[in-house]
Design a protein around this nucleic acid. Structure first.
Ligand code: MN
Ligand code: MN
Length: 488
DNA sequence: GCCCTTG
DNA sequence: CAAGGGCAACGCTTT
DNA sequence: AAAGCG
């Protein structure tokens, strides 16, 4: 007969530890169990059941729970000799399981059904008759193999029919009522061939707008939005739990892939996981399914990440500032850019301010564009010191507009045209024509509900010319900006 | 939302 | 099995 | 140096 305790013996030096050497016994009629509190490197409880001449053993990190709602992880460890059931003491330092062992409970156990069969099948039902533990229990083997290839089981207290019945009522009351009362999840919907789970989930309690509303929005604006996403790394602000849940930013592909979203060649950004690109309506809907609310884009496209194709000015007003002042500020910026010889496009940020975007030919370095944008912002702040500031921070823009030119750094990004904002009302960053700016009353004027109607009503795309506008930064411009040392 | 790790 | 963590990055400003 | 912010 192979030695059932071989592993147990191999792990221990019995000249040093006071644990029993023991040996496998003949199977008994009455079977013992023991629970030992083991204060080893990590405190845990060792749960042992006599079976077939040895103690089958599990380490239970949190110990057994009398609550039937709890399932306690039980990592199976090597069989121990039956005499171990009486062991208490200190396992010396540097020995296997070094630390204090005390008997926390012991008694006899009785399998319900065939014990050996249940053990082999990974479903062992039994009664315990101890001082602390009694009643019926189950040990179930899970599918997962734990670390070190140890089998993982769950120890679960079963509800007892008769004895614990006066307390049975309390137990009923303890049951996970909350779980049962949660409203039934809505049936998944399908859009663009993408399954939208929890379509009726309200993601913005203020407006009552749902996850399906969001997905529908991105589907509807796809023809307008996709040109600004095409072949451009996109960063996602995801908040699967809606506006009240916690959001996270995603820049790279992660293990949980988003179906239909493309990944760029790793050479674009060799240090990290591949960057993401959205090139289809399907991918937009898929992003919404995965809890994406905002889309942020880079100022460069994947095929030439060293040469930005636009310059962005993010106008962040002091929240107390009248909207008209923000509009005036954007116009001043536009006029100055115009004097330099640059056309620009304006959109709401969907939050408090406006974004002014200057499309560029891809011939300038990041350094040129970064410095040029800073020079433009600085010029305005120096010319209109009461209107503009370029110093970051709340206290530095009191009654002013902060011109955030830092959007033009290589690693920066800006919320994309037509992106939803993760704010009350689910507003949208809305491209505008300069002519209609006077009719706009605030940055969050359009949201996912109203924007499709705006698009339908428009005679033409306010940014129609954007795609054909490829401007260069000339020497003359740099001279006007006092950047004599810079190369275009 | 989903994967992976942890108890 | 259930619960919890991770899912970005940088420059700027203030402490 | 580190924390907070956009
Ligand atoms: Mn142990
Ligand atoms: Mn802004």
């Amino acid at each position: 007969m192979p030695n059932k305790l071989a592993t147990y013996h191999a792990k221990r030096n019995f000249r040093i530890t006071s644990e029993p050497r023991g040996q496998a016994q003949r199977a008994q009629d009455e079977l013992r169990f023991v629970v030992q509190r083991h204060d080893a490197s990590k405190l845990h409880y060792d749960f042992r059941l006599e079976l077939d001449g040895t103690l089958k053993s599990w380490a239970i990190p949190k110990g057994p729970s009398m609550n039937p709602a709890d399932k306690r992880l039980a990592v199976q460890v090597e069989d121990h000799p039956i005499s171990y059931a009486d062991f208490e003491g200190i396992i010396p330092a540097h020995q296997y399981g070094a630390g204090k062992v005390e008997i926390w409970d012991s008694g006899i156990w009785e399998a319900r059904g065939d014990a050996a069969q249940g053990y082999r099948d990974g479903k062992l039902k039994f009664h315990l008759y101890g001082d602390k533990l009694h009643g019926s229990w189950t040990l179930v083997r899970t599918r997962m193999a734990g670390g070190g290839n140890k089998q993982q089981w769950l120890l679960i207290k079963e509800r007892d029919e008769a004895a614990r019945s006066d307390s049975g009522i309390d137990e009923e009351a303890d049951k996970p009522v909350g779980k049962l009362l949660k409203h039934a999840p809505s049936k998944p919907a399908t859009l663009q061939g993408i399954t939208i789970t929890h379509p009726e989930r309200v993601i913005d309690p203020a407006s009552g707008l749902t996850k399906l509303d969001l997905a529908h929005y991105y589907d509807a604006v796809a023809p307008y939005l996709l040109p600004y996403l095409k072949n451009r790394p996109v960063y996602l602000l995801r908040s699967p739990g809606g506006l009240t849940g916690k959001a996270f930013f995603q820049r790279h592909a992660i293990r949980a892939a988003i179906p239909e979203i493309a990944i760029l060649d790793p050479s674009v950004d060799p240090e990290h996981q591949p960057l993401l690109v959205i090139n289809s309506a399907k991918a937009l809907v898929s992003a919404a399914q995965m809890g994406t609310i905002e889309l942020h884009t880079c100022n460069a496209r994947a095929d030439c990440m060293d040469k930005p194709d636009c310059m962005v000015f993010d106008l962040d007003p002091d929240p107390k500032l009248k909207w008209q002042r923000v509009v005036d500020g954007a116009r001043l910026l536009r006029e100055f850019l115009n004097e330099l010889g640059l056309d620009s496009f304006v959109k709401t940020s969907g939050s408090k301010g406006l974004h002014v975007v200057v499309p560029l030919a891809r011939r300038h370095t990041w350094e040129t564009v970064t410095r040029c944008s800073e020079a433009v912002a600085r010029h305005l702040a120096e010319t209109f010191p009461r209107k503009f500031g370029i110093k970051m921070g709340e206290q530095n823009r009191v009654c002013k507009i902060y011109i955030d030119h830092l959007r033009n750094q290589k690693m920066a990004s800006t919320v994309a045209p037509y992106s939803v904002r993760a704010r009350q009302g689910l507003s949208v960053s809305t491209p505008l024509s300069w002519d209609e700016l006077d009719d706009v009353t605030n940055s969050a004027m359009w949201n996912i509900q109203s924007l499709p109607a705006r698009l339908k009503a428009l005679k033409k795309d306010p940014w129609e010319a954007y795609g054909n506008t490829r401007q260069t930064i000339s020497k003359a411009m740099l001279r006007k900006l006092d950047m004599k040392d810079a190369a275009p």
